[in-house]
């Protein structure tokens, strides 16, 4: 590691996998602020955000060796965080005896070409089309595309039935396609 250059995320993560505490601290300093900011946009409860951030970094510490190097470390960390948040909401849902829809997690994070285009927002038309969607449809797209959650996970996060997630996602895509055509 050259001293004249800050280590990259992947290098830090590799060091963390080796049990390096300094690297872990550096990784936290790099990623905790934006993670907390982004969590603020997913939950209004700052205690819940704290808990999710804490659990996320514990998973990072434990599973650093499992990061395979494809994609950004930030995306990997967010993938962990959003699922911790879903788990937390699930716990609350269960506590409130609303529903017990414990589904299996979607393992694959591979997004379709269409989704990738959405994430990258390459085109002005996409941006305009997106902004024309209703907040409900935007929320579903955000959960399923940007956060990479499964239908069930998105349902827990948004507090709506999985069936609704599916229909809204279909409607959102149909509308986008129509607008972009």
């Amino acid at each position: 590691m050259r001293p004249d250059r800050a280590p990259s995320d992947a290098e830090l993560l590799a060091a963390v996998a080796e049990g390096d505490s300094d690297a872990f601290g550096a990784l936290y300093d790099q990623h905790a602020p934006w993670l907390l900011v982004r969590l603020r946009r997913r939950t209004a409860d700052s205690d819940a955000a704290d808990q999710v951030a804490q659990e996320t970094f514990l998973v990072v510490w434990r599973d650093a060796g499992r990061f395979r190097g494809q994609g950004a470390v930030g995306a990997w960390i967010w993938g962990i965080a959003i699922r911790r948040l879903v788990d937390l909401q699930r716990g609350r849902v269960a506590q409130e005896r609303l529903a017990g829809l414990l589904g299996r997690r979607r393992v694959s994070d591979v997004a379709s070409a269409e989704e990738q285009a959405l994430v990258r927002l390459e085109h002005r038309e996409v941006i305009r089309a997106l902004n024309r969607l209703s907040p409900e449809l935007q929320a579903v797209l955000q959960a399923t595309v940007l956060d990479g959650l499964s239908t069930r996970e998105a349902a827990v996060l948004l507090g709506i039935p999985p069936g609704t997630v599916k229909t809204r996602a279909m409607r959102a895509r149909a509308q986008l396609r129509q607008d972009l055509a």
């Binding site: 982004r38 946009r41 959405l118 994430v119 927002l121 996409v126 941006i127 305009r128 997106l130 902004n131 969607l133 935007q138 955000q142 940007l146």
Partner: peptide, 8 residues
């Protein structure tokens, strides 16, 4: 939405 997505 578009701004949010860009930032994220």
């Amino acid at each position: 939405a578009a701004g949010r997505w860009s930032v994220e």
